Computed example of a mutant assay.
Amino acid sequence: MTLEALTLYGAAGSGSVAVEATLRLLGIDYTLIEGATWAEPAARNRVAPANPMRQIPTLVLADGEVLTESAAILIYLADLHPASGLSPAADDPLRGRFLRWMLYVSSAIYALHWIKPDVRRIGVPLALRDTVVDAVHDRIAFCWSTMDQRLAPAGPYLLGERLTVLDLYVNVVSRFGPWRERFIEAAPTMAPMVQRVDADPRLASFWLDRFSFD
């Protein structure tokens, strides 16, 4: 399938950055429609025709097919380019582990960030926002710790010898609150692997532009 004329709805400092990093490594051109949907009504309105959830990332393919959910987009792009090594093949012994942790990051960690912009989404009054956000951050740290204790990587990257979209995904999501410092504390085994991706010369300037620690 051709990936010509890709359109990505995304924003700096968001989960779409992992998709952008993947497209960059694959050498695929795309049109970026920038907009922080969690903070800008205009951005939500722009993405709504493609994604009724009005969320990013949303990727529109050349044939009009729409992909949402960052983990799904990352797996799709990596699988479409097997020579890149960005995902284990279906018959690779690492495939099950790859899928497990991609969906774990999506469901156990990334999904919790949906609560923070408006805690009323889970029936909590705004007056309790700080308490709820603190609890969410505690849960996220626990989930990172759980992953760290069970992933058991045997190489410089999270699945071993090769960089995959799992590394890119964890790199980006670990930049969200409760911030990278707490990730390093909660996940000491994964921390140097994620920092290796920070320093990847193909992405170093990209991180500064799209999701700087500053």
Rank of each mutant, 00 (worst) to 15 (best):
M147N: 02
S174E: 12
G177F: 13
M193L: 15
E161M: 03
L158M: 05
W179Y: 13
G155A: 07
M193E: 11
P192E: 06
P192Q: 05
I184Y: 14
F176R: 02
A191D: 06
I184F: 14
M147G: 03
L159H: 12
P153Y: 11
A191F: 14
P178I: 04
W179P: 01
V170F: 06
P188M: 10
V165M: 10
A187I: 13
R180M: 00
R150M: 06
R182V: 03
R175M: 08
P156H: 01
V165K: 09
D148I: 05
L168W: 07
L158Q: 03
R182Q: 10
R162N: 06
Y169Q: 07
R180Y: 07
T189V: 15
T164S: 10
M147S: 03
P192C: 04
R180P: 00
P188W: 13
M193H: 13
V173C: 01
E185M: 04
W179S: 08
N171R: 15
G160V: 05
E185T: 10
Y169G: 02
V165F: 13
A152H: 15
A154M: 11
F176T: 02
R162E: 07
Y157W: 02
V172M: 14
V173W: 06
N171C: 14
L163A: 02
A154G: 09
V173H: 04
Y157D: 00
P192F: 09
G155Q: 11
E185F: 04
L163Y: 05
G177N: 11
F176M: 04
S174Y: 15
V172Y: 10
F183V: 12
M190V: 15
P153I: 08
Y169P: 04
E161Y: 05
A154S: 15
I184K: 14
P188N: 10
Y169F: 14
Y157Q: 00
R150A: 11
T189C: 08
P192I: 10
P188F: 12
F176W: 15
A187N: 11
W179E: 09
G177K: 11
E181K: 07
R175Q: 12
R182E: 05
A187Y: 14
Y169T: 01
V172D: 06
R180K: 03
I184R: 15
Y169C: 02
N171W: 15
A186T: 09
E185R: 09
P156S: 01
M147A: 06
F176D: 02
